[in-house]
Write a protein that binds this DNA or RNA. Structure first.
Length: 602
RNA sequence: GGGGGCGUGGCGAAGCUGGUUAUCGCACCGGCCUGUCAAGCCGGGGAUCGCGGGUUCAAGCCCCGUCGCUCCCGCCA
C-alpha cells in the first residue's frame, strides 16, 4: 500500500499495463494504466488534454467534459513534471485529430482515474528541449536534464553501443574480465589520481589511466582474447572530448599481428553501427601512415568528411626571392600550401583571421596569393611572377582560388596549415554532418625527441613493438623507428589507439634504456610485468576504443559530456554533488595525510 | 600556465552612440475557455543587470580588477 494523493492506493493499481510509447490503433479499446510524467498540459476548461511521458514515448490523455468532477479537479491541479498514473480506456482519435508526428498519435486515453505520486516544483529549466539551459545548470540538475528527449536518446545509443560491443566480442570468443581500479602508480603518461592508504601509512594506490599492464598480464595468463568496458582515470585538464574519468572498450589478443587487430575492430564497428544506427560501414577502413596524414591534412586525426588536401612546394620556392620561404627551406624546413578553392574574394580581414588560426599552432605567419584570370596576384605574388606557371600547376589552381602557404619546420608547417584547413572547411560548409569517415593512421614513430629535456620520449607508451626492420638500429638511431602502432580516427577524432606489444624482455629493456629509464626504476615500477615475461609470455597486441567519443560522434554531439550520464565540468568539478569536497579531520587522520595550501589556495 | 567568448527575473534571449519606470518569449499566480498537440484569451507577481571598484550630472552599456562557466593552446603515453 502506498499513501498518496490523500488516500490509500492499492499497489495493484500502480502497476502499469503499458508504456507511454506502445499504444496505437491496433490496441482496440483496452482498459489500460499508464505511469509517467506530465509533459504537456492543455486545459480547455471543458475538455483537458495531458501529454504523459515516460522513457518509451508520449501518450495523450483526455479528461472529457462529462468526467466526474473529482477527476476534473485532480487533473486541474497537475503541473509540469508531476509524476502520475492514469487509468482509462484507449480510444481512436477522430480522423481529423490524428497527430502523425507522434507514434501514439492515432489514439488517446480517456481517463477515469488519476493518481498523483509526487508533485514538482517550478523547474529550473524546461525539459521540453525548446530552449537549452546553460550547461552549468544542466549539470547541477542533471537528473532533470536526463529527462530531455535528447539525453534519453543519447543514453539509449550509449547502452545499445555497449551492448553491441559485448555481443560482437562474445561471438568472437572474447572474455570480459575486470581488472583492479586500485593499482600501483605508474611513472609515464598522464598524472595519476591517488588514493591514500589507511592501513599503510605513507602509501597510496593510484587509479588506472587504463588497464594496459593488467591486460598484458592476462595475455601471459593465457586468456588470449580479453575485453573490458573499463573506466579510466587521468588527472589532466578536461576538454570537450576529455573527462578526468572516461570509458574505454579495452581489448587485447594473443598470437595476432596488426592486421588481426584492425580487422577485428572494423568488424566490431560495423556491428555496432548496424545495430544501433542501422548504418552500414565499409568492411575495411581507409589507411594513412602518420606521415601521410600529417603531410596531406596537417594532423594525425584528419577529418575526411571533406578532402581539401595540403601540398608541398619546398622544392619550387627554395631559391625564390621570398626570404621567409628561402630561410625555411635552407634550415631543413618545408613550405606547405593549401588551395582554398573559390576564396579569392576573401577580404584582408578574412585572411588575417585565417592567419590568426595558423598562429595558434605556432606558425609565424600565413602567406597568401590570389589566382585571377591574369595569373597570381596580391599577397606574396610579386616574388613569384617568374614561377607563376609552376605554382599554378602544382596547386591545381584556377582563377578565383586563394593559395595559402605555411613555411616552418615540418611539424609546425603541417599542423598550422592543417588548422587553417579545418577552419576553412567549417567556414565554407564543406563538412557533411551525416557522414561517418573512418580512417586508420598507422606507422607512428616509436620515439619523439623531447626538446625541453634533451631526451627521447615514448611517442605512445613503452610497451609498443618496434617494427622488425628497426630492431637492430633502434638504439643507435631512435628517430626513424616506426612502431607497430595504430590509431582509429573518425570524423577528426581519435577514437581508438593500440599497438602490438613487446613480449621480449630484451627488447623491452632496450626501449627503457632509449627513453632514459634505468633498470632499477623499470624493475621498481613495472617489475611485475617484466617478471611475467620470464614465464612464457605470448606475442600479443590490442586496441582501446574510447566509448565516450565513439558514442558522442554517433549521437552527433559536440562534447562527450552529452553522452555521459553524470559528467564533470571542464574544471573537473561535479556541479551535481559539489565534488571534490573537503575531508573531515578524522578522515585525514585515518589516512595519515595533511593538506598544505598556499594562502591563495585557501 | 596562456588566449578567445559568455554572465540581464526560475529558464532562454533583446537592450543602439551612456539618457525617463530595463523589453520579449517560456515558466509561475489568478480568471475565462469543448478537440488541443509550441493550445488560446484577459490580468498579475517576480531583476540590487555575476561580484568589487572607477569615470560621469547620469552606467546593464565605458575603464580596471575579480569570480564563475565555456571554447582553444599547453597538458592529455
Amino acid at each position: 500500500m502506498l499513501f498518496s494523493n490523500d488516500r490509500l492506493i492499492p499497489m495493484k493499481f500502480l502497476k502499469r499495463t503499458h508504456t507511454c510509447g506502445e499504444l496505437n490503433a491496433s490496441s482496440g479499446s483496452a482498459k489500460v494504466l499508464l505511469s509517467g510524467w506530465v509533459y504537456k498540459n492543455r486545459n480547455h476548461g471543458g475538455i483537458h488534454f495531458l501529454d504523459l511521458r515516460d522513457r518509451y514515448g508520449i501518450t495523450q490523455i483526455v479528461i472529457d467534459e462529462n468526467a466526474p468532477s473529482e477527476l476534473k479537479e485532480t487533473a486541474s491541479r497537475l503541473k509540469f513534471e508531476y509524476c502520475i498514473s492514469v487509468s482509462g480506456t484507449v480510444r481512436k482519435r477522430p480522423d481529423n485529430m490524428i497527430n502523425k508526428d507522434m507514434s501514439t498519435g492515432e489514439i488517446e486515453i480517456s481517463a477515469d482515474d488519476i493518481i498523483i505520486h509526487s508533485s514538482c516544483d517550478t523547474l529550473p529549466f524546461m525539459v521540453d528541449g525548446e530552449a537549452e539551459a546553460r550547461e552549468e545548470l544542466r549539470l547541477k540538475y542533471r537528473y532533470l536534464d536526463l529527462r530531455t528527449e535528447r539525453m534519453q536518446r543519447n543514453i539509449t545509443i550509449r547502452h545499445k553501443t555497449a551492448f553491441a560491443v559485448r555481443e560482437y566480442l562474445n561471438s568472437r570468443n572474447f572474455y570480459e574480465i575486470e581488472t583492479p581500479t586500485f593499482i600501483k602508480t605508474t611513472p609515464e603518461g598522464a598524472r595519476d589520481f591517488i588514493v591514500p592508504s589507511r592501513i599503510y601509512p605513507g602509501k597510496a594506490f593510484a587509479l588506472p589511466q587504463s588497464p594496459q599492464i593488467y591486460k598484458q598480464l592476462l595475455m601471459v595468463s593465457g586468456f588470449d582474447k580479453y575485453f573490458q568496458i573499463a573506466r579510466c582515470y587521468r588527472d589532466e585538464d578536461a576538454r570537450g572530448d576529455r573527462q578526468p574519468e572516461f570509458t574505454q572498450i579495452d581489448i587485447e589478443m594473443s598470437f595476432v599481428d596488426r592486421e588481426d587487430v584492425l580487422s577485428l575492430t572494423e568488424g566490431m564497428m560495423n556491428h555496432v553501427f548496424e545495430k544501433t544506427l542501422s548504418v552500414k560501414l565499409p568492411e575495411a577502413f581507409r589507411r594513412l601512415t602518420y606521415h601521410q596524414a600529417m603531410d596531406l591534412y596537417g594532423t594525425d586525426k584528419p577529418d575526411l568528411r571533406y578532402d581539401l588536401q595540403m601540398g608541398d612546394m619546398t622544392d619550387l620556392v627554395k631559391d625564390s626571392e621570398f626570404s621567409v620561404f628561402k630561410a625555411a627551406a635552407e634550415s631543413g624546413g618545408f613550405v606547405k600550401f593549401l588551395n582554398a578553392k573559390g576564396c579569392a574574394g576573401y577580404s584582408r580581414k578574412q585572411i588575417t583571421d585565417l592567419e590568426e588560426t595558423a598562429k595558434i599552432y605556432k606558425a609565424k605567419g600565413l602567406a597568401w596569393m590570389k589566382v585571377t584570370e591574369s595569373g597570381i596576384d596580391g599577397g606574396i605574388s610579386k616574388f613569384f611572377k617568374e614561377m607563376e606557371k609552376a605554382i599554378i600547376e602544382r596547386t591545381c589552381a584556377q582563377p578565383g582560388d586563394l593559395l595559402l602557404f605555411a613555411a616552418d619546420n615540418w611539424k609546425t608547417a603541417c599542423t598550422s596549415l592543417g588548422a587553417v584547413r579545418s577552419r576553412l572547411a567549417s567556414d565554407l560548409g564543406l563538412i557533411d554532418r551525416d557522414r561517418f569517415e573512418f580512417v586508420w593512421i598507422v606507422d607512428f614513430p616509436l620515439f619523439e625527441w623531447n626538446e625541453d629535456e634533451n631526451k627521447w620520449d615514448p611517442a605512445h607508451h613503452m610497451f609498443s613493438m618496434p617494427q622488425a626492420q628497426f630492431l637492430d638500429t633502434m638504439e643507435k638511431d631512435p628517430g626513424p623507428v616506426k612502431g607497430d602502432l595504430y590509431d582509429l580516427v573518425l570524423n577528426g577524432y581519435e577514437i581508438a589507439s593500440g599497438s602490438i606489444r613487446v613480449h621480449d624482455p630484451v627488447i623491452q629493456k632496450k626501449i627503457f634504456s632509449i627513453v632514459g629509464f634505468s633498470e632499477e626504476e623499470a624493475m621498481n615500477k613495472f617489475g611485475f610485468l617484466l617478471d611475467s615475461f620470464r614465464f612464457g609470455p605470448p606475442p600479443h597486441g590490442g586496441i582501446a576504443p574510447g566509448l565516450d567519443r565513439l558514442v558522442m560522434l554517433m549521437c552527433r554531439e559536440p562534447s562527450i559530456r552529452e553522452v555521459i550520464a553524470f559528467p564533470k565540468n571542464t574544471a573537473g568539478l561535479s556541479p551535481l554533488d559539489s565534488s571534490p569536497s573537503e575531508l573531515s579531520g578524522i578522515q585525514m587522520k585515518e589516512l595519515h595525510i595533511e593538506f598544505k595550501l598556499d594562502e591563495a589556495e585557501k
